[in-house]
Design a protein around this nucleic acid. Structure first.
Lengths: 118, 118
DNA sequence: AGTCGATATTGACAGCCGTCGATATACCGG
DNA sequence: CCGGTATATCGACGGCTGTCAATATCGACT
């Protein structure tokens, strides 16, 4: 049953575990893994962050930009970015004082494939 | 900006509102709508319910079956089913004493399309 | 060294959410 | 009409979560 790891549990793990949601009933553990991934993006602020970062591909987006685009304090934005990283949707690369976040390629698509019914 | 309704706010509404997440940054309201839909399925019990119901297409699934498949009390299952209905993923049809739930066709796919980056 | 600017971490707090037990509602068979 | 069965609703409780203010960390520049 998938990786059974204690630590990372990224989107890829959850996506690798099972067939498209509607294909066959998923077990308890698979459901928890998938739910964890979905919970990570099921938040307005985090959806906007992912969206903004995806749209600014090439350079990645630095936290300073994101902070004033959303209407949230800097610690809160930092927190959301961490959640998205831990879930395997984003990567961070520090360049000087700034931190640039980028989408993990295929992470969203992996999730998307699990939901499709066709 | 989509429908701007107060009441139903189904998956279709959220899906109709905007381009695929990664296409262009989404606004605050769109993010809230989409997050509401995602939150509805971002739960282990509800994922299993959707999965079970999807797999039992043809007749739909009655609550009694679902209740002992999941390891949850009947009121809890009923609650989750209501959440999924309000979000527009399921429909209920009472036949006699029993209630049969079925997937709203295309509801999962609508969500899936919003996540895809290709 | 010392300051400043950018980001991360911590601690606290309010509000939401999943779960349950108890109860209500509705339907069927005698 | 009455008991039984299936489902929904209600109220309560514990735990999780999003947010912020305060603080820590780290890098750059002088």
């Amino acid at each position: 049953m998938s990786t059974a790891t204690l630590l990372p549990l990224t989107v890829k793990d959850a996506a690798a575990c099972c067939a498209p949601l509607a294909r066959e009933p998923l077990g308890a553990e698979q459901a928890e893994d998938l739910a964890r991934s979905l919970k990570a993006i099921a938040d307005p602020a985090r959806l906007r962050l992912v969206s903004l970062i995806a749209a600014s591909e090439g350079q990645g987006a630095c936290v300073c930009d994101l902070t004033d685009l959303l209407d949230l304090g800097q610690p809160t934005v930092s927190h959301h970015l961490k959640v998205l990283m831990d879930a395997g949707f984003l990567t961070r690369s520090k360049r000087g004082t700034w931190a640039y976040y980028a989408l993990v390629p295929g992470s969203l698509d992996a999730l998307s494939r699990l939901l499709v019914t066709t």
